[in-house]
Design a binder for these strands. Structure first.
Lengths: 142, 142
DNA sequence: GGATATTAGTTGTTTTTGTAACTAACAACA
DNA sequence: TGTTGTTAGTTACAAAAACAACTAATATCC
């Protein structure tokens, strides 16, 4: 009947809806418990998992604009979750690292996030789960 | 080595990145050619594909908050892409419908969107493609 | 060495979103 | 019929994001 375009089958739309649903469901953990914004949580998670690095590096890895990173870093610093360390060989770079409190927040939220993820993925078969995450990673890095 | 939480495997993060990548790639069509915002494009696509309906109905279908819909409808009306029609039996409801120009924009963008989607999905096997879209639909309606 | 260009990161301004309070129309029911 | 409650949609204000202009440090090249 209809050969018209159907928004409900449009990948960007489906991705946005799924992203929004899951993000909203998860945000209360970092927002409610630590007063963090999404970018702050991401910066924390990067430093926690991948080790100390500069703002630039986080931005490249996560695909976040430098102004967002800059503000997230300032907020995390203010919360005493990270410290900055200007590098001697090039004083434009600053190495960012988690404090004790930052690491503790990362461990806490990381545990909750892992559970949250497991619960979400539980509704799919293992092979499906693999296909889904691989596909998303592929699409994200187009 | 690491049993720590890995952001790069976290579904909400992957979904957000994939959503952002595809949305950015597609937005120049409705933004560049018609000066629309994402919500406007979605409202247009709903009315074009599913027929005339009220703002409330669009919001429920698309999971968009009523204030966003209200603003998108005002913008589309200002662009002469839709008209409002207050219903006689309950004057709180207004039926929204596309104008000639609105339908033409929908046809145009719908064609481009279908091509865009096909190209994106082309990198996956048909069975994979089905799994992916089904999964996204499921996740979005949790 | 000094002018010019790049780079990392910040700050200011404008858009867009989110949230809450509001208006207008209708419903329910004493 | 009139008081109270609910619903569709709008508006006002606050939070966040996008974009552009900026500062400070370093690199390049004459």
């Amino acid at each position: 009947m209809h050969d018209e375009f159907d928004l409900n089958g449009f990948l960007p739309y489906l991705l946005n809806r799924a992203a929004e649903t899951t993000s909203l469901a998860f945000q209360h953990h970092y927002k409610g418990r630590y007063g963090m914004l999404r970018t702050e949580w991401r910066v924390l998670a990067h430093l926690g998992r991948y080790g100390d690095m500069t703002a630039k590096q986080i931005g490249q890895r996560a695909g976040i604009h430098k102004t967002k990173i800059s503000r997230a870093v300032a907020a995390l610093e203010h919360k005493r979750f990270l410290t900055r360390n200007v590098l001697a060989d090039d004083r434009r770079h600053e190495q960012l690292g988690l404090t004790k409190a930052g690491r503790s927040a990362f461990n806490d939220l990381g545990r909750v996030a892992a559970e949250f993820d497991a619960k979400l993925m539980d509704q799919f078969m293992p092979e499906e789960a693999q296909i889904i995450k691989r596909a998303l990673t592929r699409i994200a890095t187009l």
